[in-house]
């Protein structure tokens, strides 16, 4: 039995390990387009600010894959899945067959039509490679501009603050834009931003970016002109489902799966940030993301691929569980 897993994130790596534990003789191939060993993505900011070491960041190594007899193919992207032939095609045109397939491709920050033309001027903040690139540039950076939604924006601001950079934060709303944070915390967050002398630009958004002498001039809808040495911006997070487009496998925003992590195609499973899971109470699909969610979904997908029959339990209160710690602790630690 050949199990092929696309995506080396939390969901993919957990599934690989689970399958191998249940089916020792099964062949497990895990493919990821990042060129590093799987790591704890949620620790990237701590790594950037020096709070955790590379050894803590990486939860796998060469020896791990050898000992588990899992074949890792990193730095290689899967371009398309052919569920009828039970094959996948890599970006370099190699064709590989599978008996059971798991799509665990996560999601990526995405840019809307206004920001898209400036993609080359925007620094992404999502992968280990992004962090290494930022580290390389940091000595020349004094001021950064951040524009983006969600907890990741907070995480990024925290990281930049820790490495001593002056921060301008642009948000579309009145306050910091973190929909999943309980409302009573919002005020505290705002005052924390103010305390850290973060330049808070609210009710506004970036409409243009220019690079002038290695610095960036950011123009906003309200007509402000802001200067920075590094610009971080995103509009949304989008599940990485490109390899499933027009394959017949059902995809809305994410890949539609049932509680056993099965997609609409036989022998094709999906887990983690790239899926929309069926919510039995809502009777609809539901986007559930975050590290603990990806690990749990990866575990269940792995078990079911190896022949078990387990269902995922939705805990609505932990839709975005920040690793068991309340947001306060994460922000003020």
């Amino acid at each position: 039995m050949r199990y092929v897993i696309v995506g080396t994130g939390a969901a993919g790596a957990t599934a690989a390990r689970t399958i191998k534990r249940m089916d020792r003789d099964g062949e497990v191939v895990i493919i990821g387009d990042e060129r590093f060993f799987p790591y704890n993505r949620y620790l990237l900011t701590e790594f950037l600010s020096g709070a955790v070491s590379a050894a803590e960041l990486f939860h796998t190594s060469e020896e791990f894959f050898e000992a588990m007899d899992i074949r890792l193919r990193k730095g290689q992207a899967v371009e398309r899945v052919y569920p009828n032939d039970k094959t996948i095609r890599f970006a370099h045109n190699e064709v590989m067959s599978y008996d059971r397939l798991l799509i665990a491709t996560g999601r990526s920050p995405s840019l809307g039509p206004v920001l898209r033309p400036y993609a080359k001027l925007i620094q992404r903040y999502y992968t280990f490679e992004d962090i290494l690139l930022i580290q390389k540039r940091l000595p020349e950076v004094r001021e950064v501009i951040v524009s983006g939604r969600g907890l990741s924006a907070l995480d990024l601001i925290q990281g930049m603050y820790r490495v001593g950079k002056k921060i301008t934060y642009i948000t579309r709303g009145q306050a910091i834009d973190v929909s999943t944070v309980e409302s009573h915390l919002m005020g505290d967050l705002d005052s924390a931003l103010a305390e850290r002398e973060i330049n808070f630009v609210h009710d506004d958004r970036i409409v243009a970016i220019e690079c002038v002498d290695n610095r960036y001039l950011v123009k906003t809808f309200q007509g402000k002109e802001l200067w920075g040495d590094l610009v971080f911006a995103w509009d949304n997070y989008t599940p990485n489902v490109g390899c499933l487009r027009n394959t017949g496998i059902e995809v809305k925003t994410g890949i539609l799966v049932d509680l056993r992590m099965r997609s609409s195609a036989p022998e094709v499973y999906a887990a983690g940030d790239c899926v929309e899971i069926y919510h039995p109470t809502l009777k609809n699909y539901w986007i559930n993301f975050g590290w603990p969610n990806a690990v749990e979904q990866g575990r269940i997908a792995g078990k079911n691929m190896a022949g078990d029959n387990e269902e995922y339990q939705i805990h609505e209160t932990t839709l975005f569980n920040i690793l068991g710690k309340p947001l306060e602790a994460r922000w003020w630690d």
Partner: peptide, 21 residues
């Protein structure tokens, strides 16, 4: 910060090979 053990992928950790030096 450390994730709770249930969510961690704890295993022998090693850096991915330096790209800085």
């Amino acid at each position: 910060m450390k994730p709770p053990s249930s969510t961690s992928l704890a295993s022998p950790s090693k850096p991915a090979g330096g790209t800085k030096a």
